[in-house]
């Protein structure tokens, strides 16, 4: 009796776990499935495509697109005119490729990558110095700063959006593309800085002070100590914080939508996807493929740091 009871209990438990996992991953399965389906297959409730369609991935990544977009007459022209040089041919092909309303995925991907990686790097450097300072040194106002970092969590993006945009316009930054890049970069730094400070501060406090004392006795100054002792000891925490900051910037939409609005060349993926897929009915496969490719870098990075990140998240080092 007891074993039978136990088996039923275990079975119910397994079902519960299965249901939770299914709830969590179903939208992702939906995404993969639809990205690989042909349009005649969309209405089919099964997640398994009847016939695999790699077309949308090819289109987004620009694989195998050179010839397809060209009108047939132009293709014939290219083939039958031997005295065209290679450059001339490529120029003609490029012209046709640009006129199509193909989603410039590569460009937006690169923009997102540049914004996220550089703002996370700046934020990280400032945060390493700051976190070292308030977790290791004694001075007046240290506690106020430490608590203040937590306090800024309460300010939502929308509260700061209007004044920051107004300032950016007043300074003339919002009027030019370069100024807009600068504004967005600085804003992403400040969005990630409190989290970085908080997470790194928590980590630095776990490094035994005696190691640093030994370094001071050896005659190293504070900068040398940070560079030669603290950084190597906390390299995994630093990588984690960097990736976390990167993810915040990569996922950001609100500020990008206001600041980058009139500069299509520097769109990030999040506003690129939103603006290009306003009418969705004809292009679900491409939307899903683009969603997959947008989520993928973040998911891969996350898997790399999962162990450290979940520790950092539970100790309160998060911002949304």
């Amino acid at each position: 009796m007891v074993t039978k009871h136990r088996t039923i209990k275990n079975l119910l438990f397994a079902l519960l776990i299965l249901a939770i996992v299914l709830f969590a991953v179903f939208p992702f399965l939906q995404m993969v499935s639809t990205s690989l389906k042909y349009s005649w297959d969309w209405g089919n409730p099964s997640l398994v495509p009847l016939k695999l369609n790699w077309e949308s991935y090819g289109e987004l990544l620009g694989i195998g697109q050179d010839i397809k977009d060209l009108p047939e007459s132009v293709q014939i022209l290219l083939e039958e005119t031997p005295d065209l040089t290679r450059e001339q041919k490529e120029a003609i092909i490029a012209k046709y490729r640009d006129t199509g309303d193909v989603f410039p995925f590569g460009k937006y991907f690169l923009n997102s990558l540049l914004f996220s990686s550089s703002s996370a790097l700046i934020s990280l450097v400032i945060a390493i110095l700051g976190a070292y300072s308030f977790s290791r040194m004694e001075y007046k106002g240290r506690r106020v700063i430490q608590r203040g970092v937590l306090f800024v969590y309460m300010f939502g993006g929308i509260l700061l959006l209007i004044p920051l945009y107004k300032v950016s316009v007043a300074l003339g930054l919002a009027g030019t593309q370069g100024g807009t890049v600068l504004s967005v970069l600085i804003i992403y730094v400040v969005q990630t800085l409190p989290v970085c400070l908080y997470m790194l501060g928590n980590y630095f406090r776990t490094i035994p002070f005696s190691i640093e004392e030994a370094a001071f006795i050896e005659g190293l100054n504070h900068f040398q100590t940070i560079w030669k002792i603290i950084l190597p000891l906390s390299i995994s925490a630093i990588a984690t914080v960097y990736i976390y900051a990167f993810m915040i910037a990569w996922n950001e939409y609100l500020y990008a939508s206001v600041f980058l609005k009139s500069y299509k060349d520097i769109y990030t993926l999040s506003i690129g996807l939103k603006s290009l897929f306003v009418s969705k009915n004809a292009i679900w496969d491409r939307i899903m493929a683009a969603s997959m490719l947008t989520a993928l870098p973040v998911v891969i990075l996350f898997l790399l740091i999962q162990k450290h990140l979940t520790g950092g998240m539970t100790s309160g080092g998060v911002k949304e």
Binding site: A24, T34, L269, S270, F277, K280, I287, S291, M292, Q306
Partner: peptide, 25 residues
């Protein structure tokens, strides 16, 4: 697997949700 919803970009998961509730498909 359980952490995926939390880390994935909002912009990419909303489309999957919209498709799930899409009246036609």
């Amino acid at each position: 697997l359980l952490l995926l919803p939390y880390i994935a970009p909002v912009i990419s998961v909303v489309f999957a949700w919209q498709f799930f509730f899409d009246p036609v498909n």
